[in-house]
Amino acid sequence: MRKPRPIVKNILEYIGARCAMAVVDSLSLPAAERVARGVADAWFALGRSRRRIAIRNILRAGITADPRRAAAIARASFRHFGYILAESLKSGEVFTETNWRDRMELQIHPDTMALFETPDRGVILVSGHFGNWELAAQLLSHVKPLVGVTRRMNNPLADRLVQKRKPRNRFSLTPKHDTDIRRLIGTLKDGHILALMIDQHAPRERGIPAEFFGHPASTHRSAALLHLVTGAPLCFAYSVRLGLMRYRLVAEAPLTFTSTGDKEADTRCILETLNRRLEAAIRANPEQYLWAHRRWKL
């Protein structure tokens, strides 16, 4: 059982998060981005553990074999994370229901768009920690209501703060490891998008080893099982940051798999197909991926 976090730590983190939000709120978008870059650079310089993880992951994924190039990508990835954090916080000031398409290019496969435009058709949307996943989900909810499956933060105070700030438009959240399966299935029944991330390490009892950049990575099984059980189409989607608060949202063609009776093989086949889609997106813009996560922890 996990040791409870010290209350003082939770309070200090909460105060830090409140202050950061207040600073970002008070700045213009370009100024907020400059601050985010400075903080990201400091984090990269001082956060030895995360920096090492990121560089090691980039080398392991084969993005480059040159450690100096890997370090440069890792640094850019930290900056990217700073930018998207700042942009997510500022997004409420920039995007409205009528102007969001001015800053978000849509590259949605026609078959997927047809599913999005069919009111009673639920879709399982799968993505990774690439581009600006949260902003993309919020804006995609203008096309079709979207429920994101999210992990609660370890700090309950910070979690409440973030949960309060995140939901916008027709975007809502549901906790990962929810004991009520009806919340997930109900989303699909209501014809909404159920969005899940597949690139976080899954504990042994919840995951299955699936190849990611040629190495087995314990991957959450829920997206694959939900597809096999409900028959709701699967769609891989991601966003790419093009510049200051400018993005492209890519939603690929829907995928459909049939059960063979071998649950493990079926699940692995789906997850590895989705992992390959994510790998392709990452290879095109490796600096936009969150590398500082122990993805290959077994």
Binding site: D180, I181, R182, K189, R221, T230
Partner: peptide, 26 residues
Amino acid sequence: DSLAILDLLYDIQQAFGVSFEPEDLM
């Protein structure tokens, strides 16, 4: 939990040769 129920539903589908729609499950 939700994952265990998904596992169970997969096994039920295979054992009974049926498919589920989200509205059936609700």
